[in-house]
Design a protein around this nucleic acid. Sequence first.
DNA 1: TATGAATGAGGCTTCATTCAT
DNA 2: AATGAATGAAGCCTCATTCAT
Lengths: 189, 189, 189, 189
Amino acid sequence: MSTKDLILATAKDMISEVGFHKMTTANLAKRADISEGTIYRHFESKEDILQHILDTFDEKYQTLSESCRARMDKGTLTLQDLLGSHFTFLDANVADVKIVLGTYSILDITHRSMGRFIDHMRTLFEDFLARGRENGTLLEVPLKPTGMILANMFFGLMRIKLYWPEIEDFSKEAVEFSRRSLMVPEAGK
Amino acid sequence: MSTKDLILATAKDMISEVGFHKMTTANLAKRADISEGTIYRHFESKEDILQHILDTFDEKYQTLSESCRARMDKGTLTLQDLLGSHFTFLDANVADVKIVLGTYSILDITHRSMGRFIDHMRTLFEDFLARGRENGTLLEVPLKPTGMILANMFFGLMRIKLYWPEIEDFSKEAVEFSRRSLMVPEAGK
Amino acid sequence: MSTKDLILATAKDMISEVGFHKMTTANLAKRADISEGTIYRHFESKEDILQHILDTFDEKYQTLSESCRARMDKGTLTLQDLLGSHFTFLDANVADVKIVLGTYSILDITHRSMGRFIDHMRTLFEDFLARGRENGTLLEVPLKPTGMILANMFFGLMRIKLYWPEIEDFSKEAVEFSRRSLMVPEAGK
Amino acid sequence: MSTKDLILATAKDMISEVGFHKMTTANLAKRADISEGTIYRHFESKEDILQHILDTFDEKYQTLSESCRARMDKGTLTLQDLLGSHFTFLDANVADVKIVLGTYSILDITHRSMGRFIDHMRTLFEDFLARGRENGTLLEVPLKPTGMILANMFFGLMRIKLYWPEIEDFSKEAVEFSRRSLMVPEAGK
DNA sequence: TATGAATGAGGCTTCATTCAT
DNA sequence: AATGAATGAAGCCTCATTCAT
């Protein structure tokens, strides 16, 4: 692993654990077992490290987003699948999510990154809803706001999971809640 | 306005605008037009200021919560009313909400405060759902998770409103979304 | 008790307990149950309070010193008496002694006060030794240094007693030690 | 000289001159011609500097103490030698002694350090007295208190020398004073 | 006389960043 | 590339003293 990647990985862990402000260049260097000066050989500033982490996260989500769209185009993507792959993605990127959720209100760069994130997710859900409407499987709901509602519910679930782990998981019920609200009641039922 | 209240009000504005870390004792004093030392005549520490703000917020929400319960006991509280009075409350306390949302991931005291807040809101929604079930107006849904889902949706709405005001308001749709999921479809329809 | 005396008494206790620097005008006022401003109605500064305490102590020692001299002139003062009345005096003025011992190295005013104190005590012992020599009860020792040695031993005893109370009292042995060094061995013994 | 040693040496001078409280991190940095931040690269806190000074002093006295004991075991150590080497030691470590004497009443760490110092010195004198008694050169005196008396006299001498240098040295007389009190009068005399 | 809020200088400490090696 | 000592601005907090009431 290159020194740059080592710094990035260590910083990601630390920021998600203790927050951006409490990760100092001194303890980052110590934990990565490098010298403080070395950080500045690879990054312009402490904030620049965060920027790199966020960029990588953006890309990773892009990848997921594209793969979802691809499956959507083939018509093989159920609501279950869509939500499921998002849960999986977020679980696999807990540290990044914690960073984004924990600093968007304080740091401009994270705020922007989270803005983009929300936007992508909303659009994806929106497109999914549009398909569903065409299929006749989903009710006629206003697309944009509903996409937003779903994206929003997602972030909420993650937040609770990350910051109040003692609260028991209610993601299954959230899916049910959404299904009841969106699915066309099956005939004969 | 007493000096103590002046400090409290100024700090509330500043923390909600720039975050707890970026409000320094020096610029708080400057903005409140007092000396730095004066802060410490009225508060034990910078964190103590935040504590007072949070305590007041807790109390304000208690009041709302109790008034909702009172109306629930009289049977005059519709879902619309419940959600509406929460929107009103949150709108009226934008700065407090921003503080809570912006620091719970960094500061223990806010984390606890937000934990209590979520808990109260969830319980309130839960009780409301229980009534609805008894009345036959609401579907048989699992109470606790559903209460959580509603509380969660609320926070999400506030967050978007506060931090991405450029995104258009979707609270009405969120209410509709929830109604579709929870209400017993009226007979004859 | 007048407010001035109340301040003086409270300050004396506090300085001897926690030191001059750690007695702040704020906690002095609190302990004396007066306001901080009141202190400055009676004293010019914090140091001025100490000055008054030291002056009073000086006077008290003057009184002891004079009474010893009076008894010396009558020829009724034994070495035992002299040392004994000093022990009694110091025991009765523990707080003052602690103040003097604890601050002479830091504060000019206490340094001067302690200088005077040492000087008086040394002179007193010196004069006593001179008498003893005339009487033939004491050996021919150099007066000034021996006076100093005795005064010095005294301070040492007090210091140990005040600051290391767990060390067992050795004042009796100190008296014996001095007697052996100073007394003319009695004939026939 | 390393920066750490420079800080240590400068601090030692300053504390012994003006006391621990009046040496501020700002004026220490100025006098050592370094920045304030540099202090904290080498020491955890201001008190930590003092701790290092005291530890070094402890060690230096240990060394003296051991060398005295070694000579005692060989039987080549006279009272003169013992006292003499202590005078020399204290003279060579004037700043350390001043620090200890000037702050033991205010700071816990110095109080403990001085406690240990007194204890070592007392034990050393005690052991010496025990030998003397066996040899028949010293009188039968109670060991522990007498050791304490000698240690105590020592500290007193240093104190006077350091804080009232205008008073003329009486250490020779102090040695004489002690000899008269402790030595067995030679036969035939 | 007494109050107690207000002051502001100054104390200790942290930390992102620089730079000579 | 890497080091790590040094920097200095800035952060939080304390405290003797003043002053309007």
